[in-house]
């Protein structure tokens, strides 16, 4: 058993890292510095930055700690995408450059900038606190340590992936809604909230869920899937977000929100016509007053262009709707049965 020598022949080429710079003490606006260095195959972006810092410019500033993809410190945007510098290969990035041979390195978005590639994590921590991102144990503190909770493997698997989160904030940086509103809960905090709510040892499920369905909460997610697509741990974050929504709809008392009503309108329309009745969706979601105030001016234009959706009686049901309704109802019976079994 010998290893072919050529397996280890590692090429070398010049690569330019174009690094975002801003030192708030002296700079009034950000700029970019180009560093061209020789890089061999197998070198990570973090190692390349370390090389620059040690040999060319000691002042470039970034966070790095474990260098092994587990601490989450070195989140940054590399060629426009938020990821960890320590697990990103320079050679892999070369094919993603907008300008040949130039890798662009920028700080994460949606968080306040401190310096160069370093952003402030405090707002994220504040949200973790606001949404009680911890297990509030059903066991009183004085009783702890005496006996184990019994937890099924099935339950563990429900939040196993979610506990992979290393809070690198790549998802925070990529989130479409956070760009528009910094108050938004953020994908990482939704993920952690989901994980806590799925834990049978936790006692404040309803309190947390109650907070999540408020403004800037779970219903503000716009399903763009950017968080999930860029998650450095490949966590299906949208499943967690949908999981919280499913939970909110199932839990009585959480239904009185625009998001919940909007989602349930789909179910109701499909069950009746097989089609969505778009004309009435706005006021079923937000009420008549909101609709008149917000959508009337636009409605006028749409009427002029004959773009308005047809009123409910004119929405043509799908072909074979009777049969479809029967099938839909049969499934409803299955679901009822499932709930019964589950509650037992």
């Amino acid at each position: 058993m010998t290893v072919a020598a050529d397996q280890h022949i590692e090429g070398k080429r010049d690569v330019t890292l174009r690094v975002f710079r801003l030192n708030p003490q002296v700079d009034s606006k950000p700029y970019y510095d180009d560093y061209t260095i020789p890089v061999e195959r197998g070198i990570t972006v973090l190692r390349a930055l370390n090389y620059i810092k040690e040999n060319i410019d000691a002042s470039i500033s970034y966070r790095a700690f474990c260098q092994a993809g587990i601490c989450g410190s070195c989140g940054m945007r590399i060629n426009g995408i938020s990821k960890l510098a320590c697990t990103t290969q320079v050679w892999d990035e070369l094919s993603k450059c907008r300008e040949e041979g130039i890798i662009k390195i920028e700080p994460l978005r949606n968080m306040p900038l401190i310096k160069d590639l370093i952003v402030d994590m405090d707002p994220l921590v504040a949200k973790m606190k606001h949404y009680s991102n911890w297990v509030d144990s059903t066991m009183p503190e004085a009783e702890m340590g005496k006996k184990e909770f019994l937890v099924s493997e099935e339950e563990f698997l429900r939040y196993d992936k979610a506990t992979d989160c290393i809070l690198c904030a790549s998802c925070v940086s990529e989130c479409s809604i956070l760009r528009a509103n910094k108050e938004y809960v953020s994908p990482a905090v939704l993920l952690k909230s989901y994980r806590m709510n799925a834990d049978s040892r936790d006692a404040i499920h309803d309190v947390r869920l109650g907070e999540l369905v408020q403004d800037h909460g779970v219903w503000d997610c716009t399903h763009c899937y950017r968080c999930q697509e860029t998650c450095v741990k490949s966590i299906p974050i949208m499943d967690a977000i949908h999981g919280i929504r499913e939970d909110a709809i199932e839990s009585r008392g959480m239904k009185d929100t625009a998001g919940s009503k909007h989602a349930e309108a789909f179910m109701s329309d499909i069950s009746k016509k097989g089609k969505l009745v778009e004309a009435t969706l706005p006021f079923r979601t937000n009420g008549v007053a909101w609709t008149v105030k917000n959508l009337l001016p636009m409605a006028v234009k749409m009427i002029l262009k004959r773009r308005t959706p047809p009123p409910p009686p004119l929405v043509k049901p799908s072909k074979g709707i009777k049969q479809f309704r029967a099938e839909f109802k049969e499934m409803s019976d299955h679901v009822k049965q499932d709930h019964k079994t589950h509650n037992k």
Binding site: V135, S137, M139, E143, K146, F156, R201
Partner: peptide
């Protein structure tokens, strides 16, 4: 056990 009681996902 204490960690388990506090929520560590063993």
């Amino acid at each position: 056990r204490e960690l388990d009681n506090m929520g560590t996902p063993w």
